[in-house]
Design a protein around this nucleic acid. Structure first.
Lengths: 217, 217
DNA sequence: TATACACAGTATCTTTAGTTACATAATTAT
DNA sequence: ATAATTATGTAACTAAAGATACTGTGTATA
């Protein structure tokens, strides 16, 4: 869906005003296209050649990677103002994506062509900063996952997972099943149910069918 | 230790010929200084402002991060041809390092000033590729750690750790104590000793005081 | 309304990992 | 040579997490 130039500029100004310089916003608007995705749509898939990369205007994108044994590892989520940093390398080398980007919530984004990445890197300081920052944010995110896995026991990881869901979904009432949590944390449904029950007894959450209410603080 | 221009060019040519274009090698040589570090020397420390970043000519650098509770997380190692990608963000924002780089083996490197990073990004394609590749390699490395923690049991992680040590130290005979392994893998010495004994009985390694011999294949 | 299905609860057992405590062997310092 | 230190071995116990199996209960649908 290609919307007109004014619309794109307006959107970029709204969501990336503090990130990109004015001239760059115009450049992106000129070369970008507006796109929307429904929940569970796949924005980028493993093994596909990449021609465009998204700048997220709003919504929620889940970045994951497939393991051997058909397991999917949840890496992190992209929100408003984010981009898929991990894709940049694929542009530089014209290779294929090794990650999957799925719409976890309906997504609005601006897709820009990969062949502009380098040109903008040469011409716009804010673009260089954006790219390095994007990578860095993801590195920090991955590091945080490593810490959690290395130091925290499952109960804490589950609670942290739920708290993060509250933050990114902007609601205390999570529509989610125990099985889904088990998938994201790479464990079994039974273990999740058991520990969720503990968390409920500690007063930190409230369980209902297909729904978990996370108590404040 | 500032060596002369010819020496730096020679070194860069030897170790980065396939990475940087000729003009960039000259630029780096002009602005860089040669430095060496003894085992256990700290190249970059947490909380320090960074003025220079190393390009590793040879040796081995351990990148780690301090956790709360004074625990240190091993992230990865840098070898010949590598640089400390994670530091780039600190240059862009002129902030302080959140990571520690320690010489695991004696290190030779060329230190280049952070204020050149941007300039080179504008002027040299190979530099842009190098930076994005560096970040990407580290992301892959972190992802690999996440996979190991999430899917493998300790026995496999220990064996993988040892195999990696063999690779980066270029020897089958590792001078290492059980306690050191325990620190790197965030567990206790007793657990490591127990599992190493298993690995020995499986014929994968041979244990001696302060020394572990890793069998071929 | 009857039936099937998806989701959750829980008991029991096993495996893996962490803890404590102590013994012994090799190395270094006095 | 003797003592102190460092590294390792191992037993016994506890805790955490995974596996299996079965039950109950809403929800959808035939």
């Amino acid at each position: 869906m290609k919307k007109n130039l004014t619309f794109l500029k307006e959107q970029l100004h709204l969501h990336f005003k503090d990130v990109f310089e004015k001239k760059l916003i115009n450049e992106i608007a000129k070369n970008g296209t507006y796109a929307t995705y429904e929940k569970n749509d796949i924005l980028i898939d493993i093994g596909l050649e990449m021609t465009h990369i998204p700048l997220i205007i709003n919504g929620l994108v889940k970045i994951s990677r497939e393991d051997t044994h058909e397991k999917e590892i949840l890496l992190y989520f992209l929100e408003e103002g984010d981009t898929c940093a991990i894709s940049f390398v694929n542009c530089i080398h014209l290779s294929k994506s090794m990650f999957r980007a799925t719409a976890e919530e309906p997504v609005e984004c601006i897709m820009f062509p990969v062949n502009k990445i380098e040109e903008w890197m040469i011409n716009y300081k804010t673009w260089r900063v954006f790219i390095i920052d994007s990578y860095h944010t993801r590195l920090e995110e991955m590091l945080s996952v490593i810490k959690d896995l290395a130091f925290f026991k499952l109960e804490n990881r589950i609670y942290k997972y739920l708290s993060n869901q509250v933050k990114i979904k902007h609601t205390d009432d999570l529509i989610i099943t125990h099985q889904e949590i088990a998938n994201d944390l790479n464990t079994s449904r039974v273990v999740i149910s058991r520990i969720l029950k503990n968390l409920e007894q500690e007063g930190k959450i409230k369980l209902n069918r297909r729904n978990i209410h996370v108590s404040k603080y």
